[in-house]
Design a binder for these strands. Sequence first.
RNA 1: GGACGGUUAGCUCAGCUGGUUAGAGCGCCUCGUUUACACCGAGGAGGUCGCAGGUUCGAAUCCUGCACCGUCCACCA
Length: 698
Amino acid sequence: MTKEISTHYDQSKESEIYKLWESSGYFNPDNLEGEPFTIIMPPSNANGQVHVGHALGFTLQDTIIRYQRMLGKKTLWLPGTDHAGFETQVVFEKKLEKEGRSRFQMTREEFYKEIWDFVQENKKQTEDGIKRLGASADWSRNMFTLDPRIIKIVYETFEQMYNDGLIYRDNRICNWCPKHQTGLSDLETKYEERTEPFYYFKYGPFTIATSRPETKFGDKYVVMHPDDKRYQDYKNGQKIELEWINGPITATVIKDKAVDPEFGSGVMTITPAHDATDFEIAQRHKLDFEQIIDKRGKLLPIAGEFVGVKILEARPKIIEKLKAKGLLEKVDENYKHNVQLCYKCSNLIEPQVIPQWYVAMTKEIKGKALRDKIKDAIESGEVVINPESKANFLKTWLNEIRDWPISRQTWWGIPIPAWYKGDKVKISEDSPGEGWEKDPDTFDTWFSSGQWPYATLMALGEKDFETFYPTRVLETGWDIIFFWVARMIMFGQYKTGKPPFSYVYLHGLVRDKDRQKMSKSKGNVIDPLGVIDTYGNDALRMALLVGNLPGNDLPLSEQKVKGYRNFANKIWNAARFVMQNTEGYDPSAKLHSDDENILNDLNQIIITATNQMNKYALAHAAEDLYHYFWHTFADKIIEESKAKLANPETKASTQRMLREILETNLKLLHPFMPFVTETIWQMNHKDLLMVESWPSNK
RNA sequence: GGACGGUUAGCUCAGCUGGUUAGAGCGCCUCGUUUACACCGAGGAGGUCGCAGGUUCGAAUCCUGCACCGUCCACCA
């Protein structure tokens, strides 16, 4: 039968192999024995196509899972998708914008229904993409972050943390995006250096400087450093009458160390409603303040004649007026400073004072703050982070962490289960009764996905939680170490008393062949499904695995994929040769000493590969196996076997040796290149290679 | 402003706790139409391991300083 096998490996049959695996039931740990080994798949955002970053993560996870399955573990790889609140809403609003629509012309219910349908459609597409990438995940346990069972657990955690004083609501300054109409955490903003005019104004006896004159209407506190000798004659609390933009005002002198005497004139006025530092000063001195700019970025009545004008349009007019009044002293046109932007739309963040829910990161409850629980898990080694340098990254971040705002003014997300009546607050999903008003906000997506490891397993039932929690490995991109990894450790420690996983493998960013970030605008995006169609799944997997060390970015080129397509074909043809020359071989044939030596050398490869896999050195294991198969087995052993096969005295031993090496190599390569190895295996076996035992050295 | 990472062949990178002629893949050059595979085989060229010091019998590997590249965090009115 083997005579007619094609000389080229046909990767178009890969989907059949996937179906074979899936229908075998072995993706489901209920059909496996042994010690549990769990990976929770980072839930993909259900808002679009799978991209090459997914392919990288799934390849790493699938390789680990397949290895562990072959070691005889009860492996669970739990897939899932994320509603991805803000992210998805942004994607959907862009779609609406293209259609000439806006969520602000819709009711909240209409909007929610449309985005729900949009997500359901994309969710299916995402899941199909994950399957096509070959993920040996247990689809019977597939989860979605908006599953009612998940939401219930998220609510329980919220209430529990509220009762413990770890979650609180406060009316304070927060990052506000005027375009998206929501507050954002610090992680959801970015900074950009800009050169803008810096204006010096006469403010009574002082000179104040600002790049944002449009915020200055309500400024009635003038602040300087307490030790600044230049202003020692002015006392804290002193009142000064002066002429300002819209007429005479009474200003109050405040002394505060937040002022840098070296900067500008060493004197500033504060706008607590729209600046974080100013807000802090105002809080320290218990100063009152007023909102100047509304949530859409327009001036409020306090601006007098400028009411209703957008701030950037108002700016030159305000300058004009101040100049006319003789209050403009000078302008520095080359002032460079950083402006804070929304990480999604790159519009200016306009801080606003808004009530939001927060998680207290540094408040000590029973001697430990949440921040310290994360630190402890890492420092004690309960959670090992690979690469180690990223653990230091995390620790540095934790040192300066601030409370985490978890409420968003978005509509797509899990509603916050809180109700208000006057000053009273009740945590409840349903209305507590007459006169209670529902909190209109939703949770930050990371508040639910941060609970993902235990929430999924608890949602699946007590037995699953008992069996599979804590999970073993978390594999994800290092860029979400703060957003997600840290918070999962925190929630896990809080809720279950245990970190949710013991090992974190962090991959980098996939870049194009010139190390450029992939982006639609550059047109250098690699579509993993297209690559698979052309070169095969195994080729893409190997291209993503070899030379890819944790934490490092990976340049991916078509040429690299092509190289591993060639390798898949090499395996195919070596197998073809062996099968054609070993039909009816005797598996118990007496081995000649040189064949025995060859098999002994193979043991070394097994030992090395096993050690590397146990250390999660996937790149090294993959490279070594590649090298052995091609340059030792194919180039030397097979070549030398040709003469030995022709000799009746050595034939039987050689046949047995070739078969054993081939089969061992198929097993060793299977976690990395599951399709070609399983396809070959199926030609001679009834059982699946996927559940064969990982080779052990004899 | 603070911190971290990197600098090894043309390119992408390995080189564990310092020890024989520094490795791989791709690329390049030469040769080869051998019945597993041209999606192949055989062979080859190519590196003063960023720079300057130091420790050592011995350093790509440890220490100090510098340069360049990259990343993250913070943020100044």
